[in-house]
Design a protein around this nucleic acid. Sequence first.
DNA 1: CGGGATCCCCCCAGATACTG
DNA 2: CAGTATCTGGGGGGATCCCG
Lengths: 114, 114
Amino acid sequence: MTALQMQTRHGEVCPLDTTLKVLDGKWKSIILCRLMTEDLRFTTLLRSLPGCTRRMLSLQLSQLISDHIIAKEVDTSFVPTKTSYHLTELGLSLIPVIQAMDTWGQQYITALDD
Amino acid sequence: MTALQMQTRHGEVCPLDTTLKVLDGKWKSIILCRLMTEDLRFTTLLRSLPGCTRRMLSLQLSQLISDHIIAKEVDTSFVPTKTSYHLTELGLSLIPVIQAMDTWGQQYITALDD
DNA sequence: CGGGATCCCCCCAGATACTG
DNA sequence: CAGTATCTGGGGGGATCCCG
């Protein structure tokens, strides 16, 4: 029984599966790409995701928050309320992995073009 | 417009998305884990995936093949036919990425346990 | 502005049966 | 053994409306 075959408490078969579940979701990867460079507000984020509905963005953000990858900050001193989203420490630790996946994706696309 | 925001011919938003799509699917990650250590036949693979139906395995394998991540070899000199699946060069190039994701998954699980 | 609640449709995956 | 074909339902996601 290697680490790759270990059963986790989340029901996944291996830690790789855990990572995939955290990243899985229609808009999560691009949301994370956006938040890697700057903190963003809900509507700003929404406008940067053409085709994403408010409901979907809300769902994806909720999942990322409950997975402790991002966090939100709410400023209630104004009306209307201002909220912004940013990566947590765990989210920041994902960046090298995301970059490795992005690099492989580029090489893959290049290889398929041949 | 950075590389991460580039639109690809597959309709993804960034190469990261391409990688996620290649890996996305209920059983793909564990199939790849299995094939990383040895070539396997259809039924052997199926038995190593408790809960996976033949239909699902067939679908996942088909997608991995059409994505050029794995390939199959069919030996028709026998009846019944023997087939086996193995990683392609592109599939092999995925291994470091998979290991990075697996390592992050382990650290993530550990961090959540605190 | 930043969401949640509800309705509804469509597609994915399971079950089952069949085949080279 | 190694799949494919057909049927069927349950859930995910879009559209819409509502609210603090």
